[in-house]
Structure formats: C-alpha cells, structure tokens
Nucleic acid binder design. Structure first.
Lengths: 94, 94
DNA sequence: TAAACAAGTTTATTTTATAAACCAAATTAT
DNA sequence: ATAATTTGGTTTATAAAATAAACTTGTTTA
C-alpha cells in the first residue's frame, strides 16, 4: 500500500521552488524564475498555491523603486517537504 | 537549473505501478489494483500509457476461464525509472 | 515623450488525472 | 434453467491541474 503523495508538492515547478527555498532560505521572484526556467505567469500561480497552503511566505517590498517579491519557506513548508520525501522514498524503493 | 521530470513517471499512480513492477517482475491487474488502491478505470488508463511508452508490457491471457492481464516492466521502463530517480534526487537535495 | 523593459498578475487553453458508466463472460443463488 | 451477482476489465465523461498568452503598472532609456 502506498501513502498518498502531497499533491501540492508533487508538481515539477512547485517542487523545484521548494527545493530552492529549502537551501536558500530566501529568494526573489526573478531569481526563482531564472533557476527554474518557468514563465512568470506559471511561477506566479504556483507561488500563490504554495503561499495559500502556508508552505511559503511571500513578502512584497521594493528594491529602490522597483517592486520586489521575496519568498521564504515556512516551518510548515519544511515539514511538508520532509514528509513528502519520506513518502516518495517508499515509491522509489530507495 | 533543474532537469525536467519524466512526465510519464511523475504521476502518483503510474509511479506506484512502476514501483511494484520493479520489485515484482510480474503482476496481475487485480493485484496492482489492490496494492495501489486505484479504481479499475484509472488503472486501465495508466497501464495503457505506460505500455504505449514501452515502459511495461501487458500480456492478456486466461487463468482457467477468466481473463487475466499480466504486467511486466521492460528494460526501457527500468532505465526510465532509474533515470527518473536520479533527476528527482536533485530536486530533493538527497 | 515615446519606446522598451521590468516585475508581476489575470485569464484562457491545454493537458492530465480520475471516476462513473459500461460491457462480456463466468459464477452463484433460486 | 435462468435471474442476479461477481470478476475483470475498457471506454467515456468530468474534474482538476499545469502552463502559457495576454495584460497591467510603473520605470528606465533613446
């Protein structure tokens, strides 16, 4: 029997975002966009979903006069990521 | 930069099926259904996709008078599964 | 001051996953 | 014997998700 995989994390782009934020603690929208190769629209949507779930927090600030969106992983997000890995391992026979 | 995740494997049910077949070498439809908890319809569709991709082979035989669908992983499928794990690991920081 | 660019968001489209409905044959109950 | 149920699936319809295209707002640059 397989435990269900958290659907919020079992998504290529959202997983990549979480992967970045786990190591980086903080990252700006354009950086995430570049690292993941996502389009801005897709990234925006996926960040919203992670944010709504409480997995990340999104801070909207300014860098000089330009808007700047900063993302950070939350404790809830960290826990979800770790749990996801544990469950996933049972699928991979690792 | 993240390498793309094989979309055929990055699916909860198909991954579970592959996971079973990697260890089992051979499994019948009802067994896979039971182990994965999938509905017959969903399983049928996903097995088709894996089969069309050449990741598994599906043999239709009879067990006495009853139809019996046997699934096996192919070398192509094994390779794809291993590759998928390698790529996935870069997302998990494992 | 008009054109191009940066940083996103919103909306529309495509793809995917999933289950409901269905089918054929075999078994069981009446 | 035949009606009802079960087994072993497939096909089709629906719901959800991913993704990109189009758009917005403000800022630089020509």
């Amino acid at each position: 029997m397989f435990q269900p995989l958290d659907p919020l994390l079992h998504s290529e782009l959202r997983l990549a975002v979480m992967s970045l934020l786990i190591s980086a603690e903080e990252a700006e929208f354009p950086y995430i966009k570049e690292q993941t190769g996502a389009t801005a629209g897709n990234l925006s949507v996926q960040l919203d979903k992670l944010s709504t779930a409480g997995y990340i927090e999104v801070e909207k600030t300014f860098k000089g006069k330009k808007p700047c969106t900063i993302c950070r992983i939350t404790p809830v997000g960290q826990k979800a990521f770790e749990d996801y890995i544990q469950v996933l391992k049972t699928y991979l026979n690792v």
